[in-house]
Simulated assay, not measured.
Amino acid sequence: MKIIIDDLSKPKVIQLLTEHLDGMKANSPPESIHALDLEALRKPEITFWSAWEGLEVTGCGALKRLTVHHAELKSMRTAKSHLRKGVATHLLHHILIKAKERGYKQVSLETGSTEAFKPAHKLYERFGFSYCEPFSGYSDDPFSTYMTKQL
């Protein structure tokens, strides 16, 4: 699997992000969706990675700078055809290494709280993330789960 910094211009990546946003809409009410669209992911404080097997995109993830020492994990998604093949594990491992290299001391995330998000919770738990209070402008929301990890 090849993981690259992506400029969000490839049609396959755009399709994966569309799938990601559609999944959020299907599993959370509009006011509880915090997934970023293409324009938001292109902001300078965000680095976006895509994962590839040959010419096929297998997944994506992003890291948003919150402060000098704190970043937020965003837009983690595995392509449907690559679920349960370790894509998310490889991506998360890669992003956490990059976060350490950039000097971050903490990485946090917001994800959904419904049954559809339980596999994500388990992944983050395996990587040492713990549940936490809302951070960086988020608020209590029954459809959101907040997690953090000290690096």
Rank of each mutant, 00 (worst) to 15 (best):
Y104P: 10
W52F: 05
F117H: 00
V57D: 03
Y138R: 08
L16F: 13
D22C: 15
H90N: 07
S9H: 06
E53S: 06
Y146P: 01
A35E: 01
K2W: 11
I97D: 01
A88T: 09
T114G: 00
E133F: 02
L8T: 11
T47I: 15
K12A: 10
V107G: 05
D22A: 13
S9N: 13
S130G: 07
M1L: 13
H70F: 14
L16Q: 01
T78M: 10
L96S: 04
A79C: 15
M24T: 00
V107K: 15
L63Y: 02
H82G: 12
V107H: 03
L63S: 09
A99K: 03
P11G: 12
A62M: 03
E39C: 12
V107C: 07
V68A: 11
W52S: 01
K122Y: 04
S28P: 10
G128A: 03
S32I: 01
L73Y: 03
G103W: 01
E56W: 08
G86V: 13
E115P: 04
M1K: 06
A116T: 05
G128T: 02
R77A: 12
F48Y: 04
L41W: 02
Y138Q: 06
I97Y: 06
R42N: 05
E56P: 14
H20C: 15
D7G: 12
